[in-house]
Design a protein around this nucleic acid. Structure first.
Lengths: 316, 316
DNA sequence: GGGTTTCGATAAGCGAGAGTTATACCCTGG
DNA sequence: CCAGGGTATAACTCTCGCTTATCGAAACCC
């Protein structure tokens, strides 16, 4: 019934004291004010303005509207400002989820970058494996997920997700073979070692996270055998310890080897090569939210600044 | 930038959970909501709604708008309700001014009538002679004035006031001649006495209020003489006392004689007859204000219920 | 797994609201 | 009495916003 334009007009009339002055203040022509007051009076069924000689004066009802105009318009401006702050990256909240090994350097560096560039944007960060983070994305409890996919396999929930999600590649992460330092494969040569998967039929294996384990099974099947998986742990420090003690060997993403070192293991390239793709995942809508976009850009920048892959050979 | 319609829509979406449901709730079609959200997003430059599969979900910015919608719309509804209360006579304020002798019965009865019919309407009443009350009307400190005019003369400020003001006749008030009970004119007969003004050339006169005095001078000049005005007072009780003591005679409006009595005076009709017209005066704008209109109607009703003029002869 | 239902986006079209210019009328002040 | 400033009105135009119709896609159900 009464809209913000009406309130604005009534307030302007109260302040300016005449239709003409109010029109100038609001950037309207004088008849526009005259007609708008008339419309308001028709709608409210009451006289709002007393036309007295050369000037005008608000009636009681008109004063009521003019009096309410201040608070209402102020509250509306506050709402607009709040939205503008989000749009202008002076404010905003991003709920970020990433799998544990991305948390090491990729995510912290991106978080620092955003915090430095847009101090008003707050990012909440939760560790989660890809299936969970994508589920959160679907459920609306996450805005941006850092996930990974091994070559060929999807993100973990079906092919249709390619349409549903907005996927941005961050880093291609080569998968390495980690063996004890005194393993025959490691001793065959110094640097630049490459191990054929097909030569690892009789090894004992250590598997990482569930999806990594799935990848291990996949590549082994492609190589024509089923691996003997004796240990499973998501803790790659433990994986390295197991390997160093000669209890098995493992496929470990390069990104992890950059932060988890062990003096008694050796790193080898794998043949056929295998890699996982680390990517930022969000929805097309959220991708257009400034704070989310800024965080994604920071992730890209952070990814570009990552050090080169570790050289094969002994680590530590 | 953001109007009330936008807030209403965002709130409806937040509550209903879908565009279609929000459209039904607001009485719009579904595309209307879709377009309105799109407009809002264009204007704010931010994504407000996340389209996820079949349903929609508000983004942070969308939630901001939805959250602000409540208070803003509530304040706006409050303003509308306040105006509606004034329009519906559940509220309202009337600043009434009347000359003293109208205050006796005409005004109190009208006030009581309004108070009974519209308890929410409050009337503030100030005594004022016509020139002042009309000035207040012009100045905006009065909404309704009860004034009077003697036959022919205007309201006191020039002929243009006929156009400027909205004048409603209430009562025609005959002017009487009041003389001491033992005055020769009173003794000439019992009831139904009529005094020729031209026979009062040598009397001593008592004048009332300034305008009444003006009227006295006017009618005497019309009758061909200048009255000997020995006393002036606006207090008609004093006038009657003066007359009773034989200190002079006076022209007194009938309306006053209905409330001010004295045993020792006689009331006579005057020839040529003279009367003052009591009328309610307001502006065309204020005349359309419900509370003012109601008060004016009450004055009319009160006037119609006034007792018949006092009979000539002795009062008390 | 396929059909059905439901929901959102889009296109086209139209109607009304709202603003502009031009002009008349009126009050006010010198 | 005249000039200046202010409002109301008329006529015109245009843009905004709603509606109907239709499509595409996702979810639900058998």
């Amino acid at each position: 019934m009464i809209d913000t334009a009406g309130l604005r007009v009534m307030r302007a009339i109260a302040e300016a004291g005449s239709f003409t002055a109010a029109a100038h203040a609001l950037g309207y022509s004088q008849p526009a004010i005259s007609q708008m007051v008339r419309r308001l009076e028709d709608r409210t069924g009451t006289v709002l303005v007393e036309r007295v000689g050369r000037s005008v004066r608000l009636t009681e009802a008109g004063q009521v509207l003019a009096r309410h105009a201040g608070p209402v318009l102020a509250a509306l401006d506050a709402a607009e400002e709040e939205v503008a702050a989000i749009a202008g990256l002076r404010s905003g909240r991003v709920r970020l989820m990433a799998f544990p090994s991305a948390s090491a350097t990729l995510v912290p560096r991106a978080l620092a970058l955003v915090k430095r560039t847009y101090p008003g944007v707050s990012i909440t960060f939760t560790e989660a494996e890809p299936p969970e983070s994508l589920a959160a994305l679907r459920a609306g409890t996450c805005d941006l997920a850092v996930a990974f996919t091994y070559n060929g396999t999807d993100l973990g929930r079906g092919e249709q997700d390619v349409d549903l999600f907005e996927v941005t590649p961050l880093i291609d992460d080569d998968v390495r073979l980690v063996v004890p330092r005194d393993h025959p494969l490691a001793e065959a040569g110094g640097r630049g070692l490459v191990a054929d998967l097909s030569a690892l039929t009789d090894e004992t294996w250590i598997a990482g996270c569930p999806r990594c384990r799935g990848h291990l099974l996949q590549v082994c099947r492609d190589a024509g055998f089923a691996p003997d998986v004796a240990y499973e742990t998501e803790d790659y420090v433990a994986v390295m310890g197991l390997i160093a003690e000669g209890l098995g060997i493992a496929l470990v993403p390069d990104l992890i080897l950059r932060t988890v070192h062990h003096p008694d293991v050796s790193v080898l390239a794998v043949n056929p090569p295998s890699r996982r793709r680390i990517q930022a995942v969000t929805t097309p809508d959220l991708h257009r939210v400034p704070a989310v976009k800024a965080t994604l850009d920071a992730l890209l920048e952070s990814a570009a600044a990552q050090p080169r892959p570790v050289r094969t050979g002994s680590t530590g």
